[in-house]
């Protein structure tokens, strides 16, 4: 008798789990339905194209952050990385050529990720330490970007790659969105199908259990931080291409947007749960939400407010789901 009760409970929890999993997706569908009712423009080809090109920068950052959050850390340096990558690639191009500049910023991204990871490993940092340390590193990087550019936006010189990113596309899909899709596919496959991906989940689920099961927790988290810095570099390139200039303040507030998108998608803030698919849903949800808010006629500040509140709601529901489960 006990067994049947148990399995009934399990069944119910399973259903609830599925429902809460599908929540963001349902919200996305609902939002799209609302959007198409509010404005005839919403479902037009032009508007969808706009949405896709607008979410790309956010999307790549969110992909990287997904790794970091699943592995149990936080990365608030991505805004600084994004700004710095933009101004560096533009600044280095005249003297060294675009390819070298590109390689340099990619190397910079990996370097910053490693630095974050090693720093946290040295001090045996926990979740809270990762917040503070990456916050400090991000601030430094943002200031370096300002210093490098003297505080001004830098105009982009012509390069085939950047102009493809800006205007190109594949089968009517903007180039930045194509890059996003490729990144998402690669990161999804790694997370879902490789040993490295499994290690990400194990490191985030419980550092203690993972450590005493032979999982190299800090190495894994360092890789995650590298991934996230690398993605922020790609985001910086996209942003630079799209605005045809590199602004040293392009990344201000980026980290919050990114965390918000990941959290809205349903990846847990406390590690061990989540997926690339959820993050993509979260990113789409934010993108569509912004688009709808604009179509409705909200200004930028109003969007900021709405977004802040929506993340708070996401946090609260995440918490309540957790307490319901335990």
């Amino acid at each position: 008798m006990n067994a049947t009760v148990n399995s009934a409970v399990r069944e119910r929890m399973h259903v609830r789990f599925l429902l809460s999993d599908a929540g963001p997706l349902l919200a996305l569908i609902l939002l799209m339905a609302i959007g198409s009712m509010i404005s005839p423009v919403f479902l037009s080809k032009g508007n969808l194209y706009n949405i896709l090109s607008q979410i790309a920068v956010l999307g790549v950052g969110a992909l990287g952050m997904t790794y970091v959050m699943i592995s149990g850390f936080f990365d608030l340096s991505v805004g600084g990385v994004l700004s710095l990558a933009g101004v560096l690639v533009v600044g280095l191009q005249p003297s060294f050529g675009f390819t070298v500049a590109l390689l340099a910023v990619v190397a910079m991204g990996v370097g910053i990720g490693c630095a974050n990871g090693l720093l946290l490993r040295t001090i045996r940092g926990d979740f809270g330490a990762s917040i503070m340390i990456t916050f400090g590193v991000g601030t430094i990087l943002a200031a370096v970007a300002l210093l490098y550019s003297n505080g001004y936006s830098m105009t982009v010189q012509y390069s085939r790659f950047l102009s493809w990113l800006e205007r190109g596309g594949v089968a009517g899909i903007p180039a930045v969105a194509v890059v996003l899709m490729i990144c998402a596919a690669v990161l999804h496959v790694i997370l879902r199908y490789t040993v490295l991906g499994r290690y990400m989940y194990l490191a985030g689920a419980s550092a203690r259990v993972a450590l005493s099961s032979g999982v190299p927790v800090y190495t894994i988290r360092t890789i995650a931080l590298c991934m996230s810095a690398l993605m922020a570099v790609i985001g910086g390139l996209m942003e630079t291409a799209q605005t045809a200039s590199a602004s040293p303040v392009a990344g201000v507030g980026y980290e919050l947007d990114v965390v918000a998108a990941v959290a809205i998608g349903g990846t847990s803030l406390s590690g061990g749960w989540g997926s690339v698919v959820r993050t993509i849903v979260g990113v789409l949800l934010v993108g569509v939400l912004n688009n709808v808010l604009i179509l409705v006629g909200l200004s930028t500040p109003e969007q900021m407010i709405a977004q802040g509140l929506i993340i708070l709601v996401a946090l609260i529901t995440d918490r309540q789901r957790k307490s319901n489960l335990s």
């Binding site: 965390v259 803030l269 200004s299 500040p301 509140l309 609260i316 918490r319």
Partner: peptide
């Protein structure tokens, strides 16, 4: 609700920045 104060105040920061701009 035992939410992380860092993340919560990050959100309210966003809200008040928006309100100030508005």
């Amino acid at each position: 609700l035992h939410l992380n104060s860092f993340v919560v105040t990050l959100c309210t920061m966003f809200v008040f920045n928006g309100l100030a701009l508005l």
